[in-house]
Design a protein around this nucleic acid. Structure first.
Length: 461
DNA sequence: CACTGGAGCCAC
DNA sequence: AAACGTGGCTCCAGTG
């Protein structure tokens, strides 16, 4: 039995009941589309597989492995590329094998590898998503589980199938998979999500005034600011893509505990990978950085000093400022929180959950933030569902993804649904938890009536 | 043959 | 001091 307060118990008790209803509702699946998509994808997979068999690399592969050749074995491919064909291997796994992930394979610069990786992506889409969705669908409805008892952070999870990792970033795979999720007759899919839930939630813990300002003032943009610093740009020179890199390849990794050496390598590679340019120009960011006095990534080891004029040195300075100037109150909170946990052997989240047991520093700092952010969502889900029932609406909630809710909304009920959502998130939630010290923002995306999840588009609410 | 850990990749 | 947090699923390769 894990220690728990009555407040926390109640949330998960009510949450389990609410999520059981969500599971029972289920989400409608276009099985005809799915069958067609599986068959089309299989044809593509076969074509690509035939294509790569014409390459010399495949012949070397077959020579080495003979009848044991297996296109799904990345270990075999890595051996072929890095041993037989002598391409430089830049990384190894912790068990000493050549790393066979996307980044390391791509470092060979081979066309064969590009085709191979696309083949693998399509195979993953087919097995983990398309086939799995079809297999789990009963009478046209999919009923993913949303258990609350499996996660150390008191976040939620989802399995059979996992509804919380449906592809969205790769445009091709996103469309392929999400077209399978459709609304009921006369309805449309509506997804609402908290904007920057974890950052807002973290701020309720550390109360860093600099972060409060970022959240309160919609003209300020932390991700853009960091992207500008990293690539030595003016704010208006930060493109959409460059901001995205600032967010997902610096800010979030830093919050989760990453460090400058690893960030520098990744941020340097991102320029090439995403073809980053100065906004509105054709100047790539390598050339730009060069004009600003940064000529190379640098090659210092993890325990060495980075050299002047290298990107490594630059990123180390940015990291230092990030934690010691920009967000020094946040940084101090991390230290204090970790010390208190070491002293007490447990901590209590703002939502009432008590976490005890052996945690490392990053876990102790991240768990309360991730957990509480999910508790916001869960509390709102329970209340929204309750109100929908009270008003005898035909619409229903069909899924949950950590900080978002997917609902199947009857065509005449969108306004009413959004009114409930706003009431709950903007008014009821901050009233329930007085420690919420930042304004919360909710965003909504709506698919056309009869349309699929893929077709969702943001609307103003 | 069943099982398991490692590796990889999908999401937030 | 250490070096990205929380999950789930699939496949391989090795074990008994």
């Amino acid at each position: 039995m894990r220690p728990i307060t009555s407040e926390a118990y109640k949330l998960f008790h009510d949450g389990s009941i609410a999520l059981a209803q969500v599971e029972a509702n289920g989400i409608r699946i276009d099985t005809d589309y799915l069958e067609q998509a599986i068959s089309d994808t299989s044809i593509k997979i076969n074509e690509i597989a035939d294509g790569i068999k014409k390459y010399k690399i495949f012949k070397v592969w077959r020579k080495r492995y003979g009848s044991k050749i297996n296109l799904d074995s990345r270990e075999q491919l890595a051996n072929v590329l890095f041993e037989d064909m002598k391409y430089t291997c830049y990384a190894h796994t912790k068990t000493g094998r050549p790393q066979a992930d996307e980044v390391n394979l791509k470092s060979t610069g081979l066309e064969f590898v590009d085709k191979y990786l696309r083949l693998q992506k399509l195979k993953k889409a087919r097995s983990t998503y398309l086939r799995n969705i079809l297999q789990e669908t009963v009478d046209g409805f999919l009923h993913p589980n949303f258990p609350l008892n499996l996660v150390s952070s008191y976040r939620g999870s989802s399995d059979h199938l996992s509804f919380q990792n449906i592809p969205i970033r790769d445009p091709e795979i996103c469309e392929l998979v999400r077209r399978a999720f459709i609304s009921r007759v006369g309805s449309h899919l509506v997804e609402i999500d908290f904007k920057g839930a974890e950052i807002c939630c973290a701020t309720c813990y550390h109360k860093d005034p600099r972060m409060v300002k970022y959240i309160e003032n919609p003209k300020l943009d932390m991700h853009r600011d960091m992207a500008a610093e990293i690539y030595k740009l003016k704010k208006r020179q930060v493109s959409h893509n460059t901001r995205y890199v600032g967010k997902n390849r610096f800010v979030f990794p830093e919050f989760y505990g990453d460090w400058w050496w690893s960030r520098a390598t990744d941020l340097w590679r991102a320029i090439e990978e995403l073809d980053l340019k100065i906004e509105g120009t054709d100047i790539d960011l390598y050339s730009h950085l060069e004009s600003m006095g940064i000529y190379e990534l640098g090659s210092c080891g993890t325990d060495e000093e980075p050299e002047d004029g290298t990107f490594q040195k630059h990123v180390r300075e940015i990291e230092y400022d990030f934690w010691n100037k920009r967000f020094k109150i946040y940084n101090q909170w991390k230290k204090d929180w970790w010390e208190a946990y070491q002293e007490d052997g447990f901590f209590k989240m703002l939502t009432g959950f008590i976490v005890a047991g052996k945690l490392n520093r990053k876990q102790a700092i991240n768990i309360p933030i991730q957990g509480s952010a999910f508790h916001w969502l869960l509390w709102c889900l329970i209340r929204i569902q309750k109100l929908m029932k009270k008003y005898k609406m035909r619409s229903m909630i069909v899924g949950q993804i950590h900080d978002s809710i997917l609902a199947d909304i009857h065509m005449g009920e969108l306004k009413e649904y959004l009114k409930i959502v706003k009431q709950v998130i903007y008014e009821d939630l901050p009233k329930h938890w007085k420690w919420i010290i930042v304004p919360l923002t909710v965003e909504a995306e709506v698919a056309p009536v009869g349309g699929s999840w893929f077709e969702k588009e943001e609307i103003k609410i």
